[in-house]
Design a protein around this nucleic acid. Sequence first.
DNA 1: TCGAAGCGGCCACTTTCTGACCGCAATGTG
DNA 2: CACATTGCGGTCAGAAAGTGGCCGCTTCGA
Lengths: 319, 319
Amino acid sequence: MANTSARMLRLLSLLQTHRYWPGSELAGRLEVSPRTLRRDVDRLRELGYPVDASRGVAGGYQLQAGAAMPPLLLDDEEAVAIAVGLRSAAAGAVAGFEETSVRALAKVIQLLPPRLRRRIDALQAVTAPGVFGGGPVLDAETLTTIAMACRGEERLRFDYAPRDGEAMRRHVEPHRLVSLGRRWYLVAWDLDRGDWRSFRVDRFSDPSLTGARFRPRELPGGDPVAWLRSRLATIPNRYDVSVLIEAPEETVRSVVGDWGVVTAVTASSCRLAMSVDDLGWPIMVLGVLSAPFVIESPAELRDGARRAGETLIKSTAMP
Amino acid sequence: MANTSARMLRLLSLLQTHRYWPGSELAGRLEVSPRTLRRDVDRLRELGYPVDASRGVAGGYQLQAGAAMPPLLLDDEEAVAIAVGLRSAAAGAVAGFEETSVRALAKVIQLLPPRLRRRIDALQAVTAPGVFGGGPVLDAETLTTIAMACRGEERLRFDYAPRDGEAMRRHVEPHRLVSLGRRWYLVAWDLDRGDWRSFRVDRFSDPSLTGARFRPRELPGGDPVAWLRSRLATIPNRYDVSVLIEAPEETVRSVVGDWGVVTAVTASSCRLAMSVDDLGWPIMVLGVLSAPFVIESPAELRDGARRAGETLIKSTAMP
DNA sequence: TCGAAGCGGCCACTTTCTGACCGCAATGTG
DNA sequence: CACATTGCGGTCAGAAAGTGGCCGCTTCGA
């Protein structure tokens, strides 16, 4: 106890929970003299954390945003909320943030006390797809295990079921997790084949860290995303949707959110562009907007939308 | 520099980024002798962070999950990912986590360096509702400002537009943020009225912390959620949707996700129940399912669905 | 104008930290 | 098996830091 380091952390923690603290209160909680508290605050400032102070009656200290992120001192609830938020972001709830979220999630999960981890697991898998359509269901543990292997440069074993054929135990040196088109891939050096391979994470089962560390090899070309893209180039199966809609830009955007790009064409019409695996989603958007539209591509969307319209009409026709 | 506290933080940070470190490497990075490193590791252990060590050739240190959450040392990307994930969770992407997420978000935002905050702002408002229907659009700043006021026990000023009438500047002692039925409310002591009031956050504008702190009053009854519920009981304005769908339970559930309750009726049909503010959402679900259905309630849903169907048909009719 | 609160210099005393040296224990390889 | 490697922890002496108490100063709001 009573280590300086520990006290500094507690001080940081206090400053993070309440925006504002009178000095005497802080000194009391830390069980040091006010003089020492001032010195501690100084130390924090020297470390780069901007602690603001105000004088006079009702003065006090508060921690402000600085140049660098201070160590986050979280209570249980906050830690769980962060893990849950990251998990849903990793599952694709926030377009473009899948990979970063998984990396951050791996860090949090790794440090999360088991009792909290259980609480999160109780909240089910990364599923989320629901409406978001497309993405296969993964569970968070698989994803974070792989992410931890990448981060820690540890070899990884897992069962992998190729598109056709039997599941096989694989042994790889993981390189990078990549989220591409609603799917997760692991780019790794396959130790059995002696070559670079990509693996779809939704086909993993039972991944486990071997504990053996390795010196990372260099991926030819260096960029794992580009590498993966070129490898997958032979199997493009997404739809690039483009629709002209007779509704103001803002209206459309308020429905679409981050899931598509809306650009104004005139004041009362706009173009919606989305890239999806599953046409259900753009159909829903068109349905709920109740505004006239013209489908520019793909042709399949037209059939799907008409079928959906027919169903709606038929089923609401009866009295 | 070279403070013990700072070094301990750096050590924690190193242990958090790479799962595994040989001792000599750590000692080198921290610019101390191996002996001192061992002592630092001991100190961490005394503080409750379980640092594992393994001996022999290729031995090293690694940080494990412990009883408490260690201070999270985040790099820029991770901090942004966490903020983004929390924001989307706060916006309702993960049912039931709105309030906790906002509290955590307020903490992160408050500490986030401005340059990172800008990066997040560039990713737009908490909007997200979009498809999720119902929820009004809030921006994260309003929400976190209020959350910070609650946490810091600081008085708050804001413009508030009641349902009818002019916006007025208000001055309150904030008590709790509550997320209820897709909406955010602030429960607060109104300083002008001298009474407890609830405010819909989507009607706020320009909230600002006054910097004046206050001693929290006690809310009659103590439970802000119950209090708010009883206050809002007079204004129920949601739709309770019930639809019979000619599709297997699983199919429907895979589209609806957590956003509604699906119960099987026969093997090939089921009933979908949802509670929403906005009928757009159930209409989308019906549209994308392309399965016959019968609307049981509410009547408004029938009109909405038919209108949506007509739009779809008309717009896809042209060659 | 006053008092409360933060600021920071100074001092003497105490505690901790550090590097160096040691022998020991575990681990896995040749 | 022997061996090198790597972590463990005791002891020591000198160096560094942390601490509380005291002081007069500044800033702020009542």
